[in-house]
Structures are given as C-alpha cells and as structure tokens.
Amino acid sequence: MKNLLIKELKLASSPLSYIFLIAALMTLLPGYPILMGAFFICFGIFHSFQNARESNDVLYSLLLPVKKSDFVKTKFAFTCAVQLTGFALCAVLTALRMTALSGAQAYKDNALMNPSPVFLAFVLLLFSAFNLLFVGGFFKTAYKIGIPFLLFGIAALVIVAVAESLHFFSALSFLNTTSGEKTGLQTVFLALSAAAYCGITYLSYRTSKKRFELLDL
C-alpha cells in the first residue's frame, strides 16, 4: 500500500492535481460562488486519473505483486489526501474571512455564499459527489473517465446551485449568516456533512473494489 502510494506520487499523478489546490484561494474572492473552488480541486484530481490512464498505470500496477484491492485503496487514498489538503486550505481561509477580514469592505453586502462552516460542509458534499460519481464510475471500466466526470460535473452544478439558493429562504437564512450566533448550528451541519463524506467515500470504495475485482483488463 505504501509502495503503491509512492508509485502514485512519482509515476501516475499529474502535477495539475497539486497546482489546482490553488483554487482553494477562491474562498477569498468577493461576490463569487466560492464553492466552485472545490470543483476545481476535483478537476485537478481528474487530471491524475487521466494521466494514469494514458500511462497504462492499471496494467503496470497489476503486473506487480500487489492486491487488486490495494490498487483501488491507493486511488481513493490519493484522492482523499488531495481533497483534505484542499479542505484544510479552505478552512484556514474561511477562518480568516470570518475573523480578521470580517469587516473588509469588499465582503460587505455579499449576496452569494459567505465562508462559514456551512460553506465547508458543502465543500465536503461536493467532494463526496466526486468520490461517488467520478472515482466510483471510473472503476466500472478502469479506463472510461469522460462520462463519470460529466455526471460529477452535473452533480457539482446542482450542489453549487442548491448551496447558493438555500439561504434565500427565510427559514434557512441562518445557513449564510456571519453574525456568529448561529455558528453552533452551522457546525452541526458541517459535522453531518463530514460524516456523509466518510460514509459515501467508504461506500464508493467498497463498490469500486468489487467492480475492479471482476474486470477483465
């Protein structure tokens, strides 16, 4: 598993997966749907899958004395490592906007989603959709990446649209408040989302493992 992860980093992954982590900086953009940053982080990971496919990474890996299930586990581990790095960056920048930059003029009267625990919850939901639809979809064939990424793209747009719309309903306005008094409730939302991320990713891993075992390559 450790050796497969090293193989992933040195041979299979694309530098774009790391470069696209810069998209976390979108958290600081005023008047912008900041959740798109999470989409671009996933787009960076997509490039590693594409690079691996063009490099015949699957065949090389299966000729090595490794378990097929470890190959699947490594792909998920790599994906989650990049996502959690992106999440950590988003979390730091969210904290910055909620504290030191809370009074900045550029962020006043923001009609779109503000950085908050709810924003971070939606980041994790978007990552969950990627793990389920793209990574899980990839392991149906171990080479087709177009349709799985299209499905994820559609899901991501729906998630962004929902995230940007919910707080306009008065009963749900607490989702976008930056006043601080609703931070506890927002954090509950984040905790539920984190649980969903873990559950969905694990489910996708289990399904992918079964699919990959049955594939003729």
């Binding site: 050796n3 040195k10 490099s55 990474d57 065949l59 090389y60 000729l63 090595l64 004395p65």
Partner: peptide, 26 residues
C-alpha cells in the same frame, strides 16, 4: 515476469524512475 511486448507505460518518465519505483515491490 510478464510483458505484453514493448513497455508501454509511463512513456514520459525516465527509465531510472520507473525502475526505482518497481524495485520497491520486490
């Protein structure tokens, strides 16, 4: 050892890098 003819993986990586990773598994 199995090979499907010519090596057709990691075409743009140096041979020494491919070997360095491969040797870790054996």
């Amino acid at each position: 050892g199995y090979t499907g003819g010519a090596i057709n993986y990691y075409q743009r990586k140096k041979l020494k890098d491919i070997a360095a990773v491969t040797r870790r598994f054996y």
